[in-house]
Design a protein around this nucleic acid. Sequence first.
DNA 1: AGGCCTCAG
DNA 2: AGTTCTGAGGCCT
Length: 468
Amino acid sequence: MWAKALSAKDFQNHPPPAILHAQNQSSISCQPSSPPPLVLPEHKPQLLYFHVDINSCYASCERILDPSLNGKPVVVLSNNDGCMVALSAEAKAMGYRLGEPWFKVKEGAEARGVIARSSNYELYGDISNRVMEVLREYAQGFEQYSIDEAFLTVRLSTRQAAHIARCIKDDIARRIGVPVCVGVAATKTLAKLSNKTAKNVPHLGGVCVWNLLPSGRRAHLFHHLPVDQLWGVASRTRKKLASMGIISIGDLATADLSTIRKRFSIVLMRTVLELRGTSCIPLEPVRKFKDQLIYSRSFSYPITDREDMAQVMSVYAQRASKRLVRDGQQAKLLTAFCATSFYGENMVFPTSAVRLQARTADPAVLTKAALTLLDRADFDGPRYARAGIMLTDLAPGDSSIAFEMFQYSHERRNVASLISQVEEKCGEGSLGLGRAGFTRKPVWEMKRELLSRRGTTHWDELVRASVR
DNA sequence: AGGCCTCAG
DNA sequence: AGTTCTGAGGCCT
């Protein structure tokens, strides 16, 4: 679709004269026409959004530790080695798709030289943190949007912005070792679109400043790209829009605002405004506390046995507890659930919600609550494929505070922190309460057969390099 | 307020 | 036979 939307020659022309540039800008943004500026528009400082994202993030991280993967098709698998969640450019070029189940393509892919890795979130998280640290150096406003994406705001002319964007890209490559693309525009939506353009048009060298694209190219993109290429527009909205004759991004940009508001939502209306150059999706402030916490996993083998499920619940509850403690939060409501395969005939999905006596992060209390699922689930027939624990009604809380009105006795004795101290000395999972205190890895634990090492965060998993 | 839908990465 | 996980936000009731 990008190939269709743009050919390389579209970008080989010189930018049009400034006056044409300015005219086109106003036709896109639908702003009232203002008197001609004294400076060329591209030299005038304005608030600009930068969108930076790591190219094929997980695959690029794997390459840091194992440079022999450079130039080869690399795919990274989801938890349980289920789907492909990241593909290197080479793997994409071979026609593999994000989200495809690995078992379907495994055989053929391996025969064609594709290299697969289980997802190593500890590695990706660490690399991500390092990248974000560098990005902050360049930003006035900053928002980490996901593990591999960030928005920056800077007050610059577009000419200066183009220079800074290149510096960012080079700096990240030099200091961290992963490739990034940068999109720059007056709104987040357009910055994201610019980033995508930077990724899909090699000629741009990984950097795209929306307002420095030749105006004809912008119009060309708007006209040829379908709406679901936009941030915030997916298949449902695409279909509904199509029924109204709105197919391309350009169609949406010129659609009637009040109709969009009425038939869709305020969200899509914002998208339309942002396409016209009016920024209305601000940088999100850093969210200190989450509203809910879910710990959910698929099993490597289906569970049919009550005692096995009891073990799963114990382990999951204690992992969820650990996250709560880490985030300095406590929960009031725990919902435990399990489910048979989503793809089977008659899916069953038993749940059990427990309102706790008081907010807590205590592993013993949460484990006991999670085990109530056993009374709700049928263990005569169903083959459970996954289970999880949802903690809601969260609030900040410190389990070491001693003068709460109500406290569980474990909390006074600080079981959670004791466990984490032991684990720090003896390793993750070395100590668990009740059924979570197994000595051998349980058989249902998710599959991660192709895991790389945690080479940047664990001393005993460091990578060796020989320098000649 | 809580369930459902949509979306994102 | 086997197909991710987590979180947010709007809309509706």
